[in-house]
Amino acid sequence: MRVVFTKGPGTSYGIAVHRETGAELAPRNGPGGHRYLPHDLVHFLVESEVGIGLGVYGRLAAGDNGMFWPADPAERAKAARRRKSNPVRPSARAQADMARSEQLAAIALPVWEVRHGHARELPAYVPAGEIPAEVDRIVSRFDEYADRWHALPVGGSLTLTW
Rank of each mutant, 00 (worst) to 15 (best):
E20A: 08
G22I: 07
A23M: 13
A23Y: 13
P27K: 03
P27V: 00
P27T: 00
P27W: 07
R28I: 12
N29V: 11
N29E: 14
G30V: 04
P31I: 15
G32C: 12
G33L: 09
G33A: 09
H34Y: 12
H34G: 05
Y36C: 04
L37T: 08
L37F: 03
P38C: 04
H39R: 05
H39Q: 10
D40V: 01
L41P: 10
L41T: 09
L41A: 08
L41S: 08
H43P: 12
H43W: 07
F44M: 04
F44T: 00
L45F: 10
S48G: 06
E49S: 10
V50P: 00
G51M: 13
I52S: 12
I52A: 10
I52T: 07
L54M: 11
G55P: 14
G58P: 09
L60I: 07
A61D: 15
A61G: 14
A62Y: 05
A62M: 10
G63S: 11
D64I: 02
D64V: 08
N65W: 06
M67N: 08
P70K: 10
A71M: 13
D72F: 10
P73S: 06
P73N: 07
A74I: 08
A74E: 09
E75Y: 08
R76E: 11
K78C: 10
A79E: 14
A80L: 13
R82T: 06
R82V: 05
R83K: 02
S85A: 08
S85M: 12
N86A: 15
V88G: 03
V88C: 06
V88F: 01
S91P: 14
A92H: 14
A92I: 15
A92N: 11
A92P: 15
R93P: 12
Q95S: 02
A96D: 11
D97H: 13
D97Q: 10
A99M: 05
R100M: 12
Q103C: 00
L104G: 04
L104A: 05
A105P: 00
A106E: 11
A106K: 01
I107L: 12
I107Q: 08
A108Q: 08
A108R: 04
L109E: 07
V111F: 12
V114I: 04
R115P: 03
H116A: 15
H116D: 14
H118S: 03
A119T: 02
E121L: 03
E121F: 05
L122E: 00
L122N: 01
P123Q: 02
P123A: 01
A124C: 05
A124Y: 01
A124P: 15
Y125L: 11
Y125V: 13
V126M: 03
A128D: 03
I131Y: 04
A133M: 15
A133D: 15
A133F: 14
A133H: 14
E134I: 06
E134T: 05
E134K: 03
D136G: 14
